Simulated scan of single mutants.
Amino acid sequence: MTNREVVVDLASFQSELTVQDYKNIGATKAIVKISENTNYVNPYIRSLIDRSAGGGVNGFAFYHFGRFYNDSAAVAEANYFIANAKRYANVQPGTLLILDAEIKGMPTSSVIAFLQTLRNAGYHTGFYTYKFLLPQFNLEEIHKYADFFWLAAYPLGGQPGPRVPDFNYFPSANYVDCWQHTDNLLGYKVDGSITLTDNAIKLFNPSEVKAEEPKPTPSPNQNNVKYDSWTDDLGVKWYKEDGTFTLSESINLRWGAKTDSDLIATLNPGDVVKYDAFSKHDGYVWLRQVRDNGQFGYLASGECDSNGKRTSAWGKFE
């Protein structure tokens, strides 16, 4: 018997969900929105991954909201999706990347062009649409290019949906791996789905995909006063401080303030980092670098003892 797992799909609308919210929801898989058209990237990709992982999600896939009506535009959007999935989610070959096809008039040939572009780049491919839109597509043809089919069908009205749906309402269709059965799972304003096949579960766990440790998120009340402090939703205390740090040795810049967080780059001696906050935890003094699109980078600037006293500095502060 196929193991049923709860899946949530996460976009900017879910940016306020906390680690505890995800624990309450009880999902084990998540599909995170990366992009839309060729001019939008979800600014909350990293925090959505980090918080949901902290709340119990152990497998990820990623999706793009398609806006194309011809094959060339489909290829352009697929390449935009791939580039930003690499940049913000560190996707590796074998990751499941999904097309969200929910606009009227999208040609089947263009869907296939999009999926072929993903597959040619080494990714597993997925196709998502609503039951009422399914007749506009040639599912038999699309299925040849899609490793995963995710179908949405649920009652309108926004009423809280259960964690496990009533299968008497399952939308009959071929090849369905995952069923989105509510747009308000347990009242948390998040789309809820359930896996239907072993194939679905396998694709959420490609061996190269790794979710980093949850990273700090700033308090909405922080200001520019030096040493204004806040505690993030993981219990780590941060202090506001604007400054620059010039490295005296090579240091890894990471997506999170943990030594096993995903790597952004290795910085070299002489590189200058502008930072806006610091934290002392896990034996290091961490700095937070502000990046594009609301993202942050983190680096250890030296060591500290168990009382938070700095014992070394791997560069010069200004």
Rank of each mutant, 00 (worst) to 15 (best):
K33N: 01
N120I: 08
A265M: 13
T259R: 11
D50V: 06
L134G: 07
I45S: 02
I251C: 11
R310M: 12
V7L: 11
T108W: 02
A113V: 00
A200H: 06
A211W: 08
G55R: 02
E303Q: 13
F62I: 02
R254C: 01
T28Q: 07
N120K: 14
F60I: 10
G26D: 03
S72M: 04
E213Q: 13
D232P: 00
K215G: 15
S219L: 09
T125G: 02
Y227N: 14
T2S: 10
L139Y: 07
F127E: 08
L96N: 04
G66S: 15
I49D: 02
N37S: 15
F296T: 05
L287Y: 12
Q14D: 02
D305G: 02
V209F: 14
D183A: 14
L234M: 14
D282A: 06
A89E: 04
K280M: 14
I201T: 13
F132I: 12
K226W: 12
Y123M: 04
W314Y: 12
E141S: 13
A78C: 02
T266W: 13
F114E: 01
L156M: 13
N42I: 02
F278K: 03
D262W: 12
V7F: 09
A313M: 06
Y63E: 08
D242M: 09
G54H: 04
S306I: 08
T197A: 02
P218K: 10
G256I: 09
T266S: 15
L99K: 01
P165K: 03
V285Y: 09
W286A: 11
K215L: 13
L17P: 05
L263W: 00
Q14M: 00
S47Q: 15
I112S: 01
H64R: 07
P165V: 00
N205P: 04
N221T: 12
Q14K: 02
F170S: 11
G105L: 04
F204C: 08
Y63R: 09
G256M: 07
K23N: 03
V190P: 10
T182N: 07
T231V: 14
Y239W: 06
L17E: 02
S172G: 10
D232Y: 07
Q116S: 05
F68S: 01
E241I: 14
A74Q: 02
I201M: 10
T28E: 08
V225L: 11
A73N: 01
V209T: 13
V164P: 08
I251P: 03
L17S: 05
E141Q: 14
Y80L: 00
T311W: 10
I82H: 07
H64Q: 07
N224R: 14
Q289S: 08
N223P: 00
Q20A: 15
T244I: 08
T231E: 11
P93D: 11
L10R: 04
T231N: 04
N223K: 12
L234P: 04
Y63F: 12
P216E: 13
R310C: 10
I98P: 00
A265S: 15
M1C: 11
F245S: 03
S52A: 07
G187F: 01
A257K: 05
D177K: 01
A313D: 06
N205M: 09
Q136G: 07
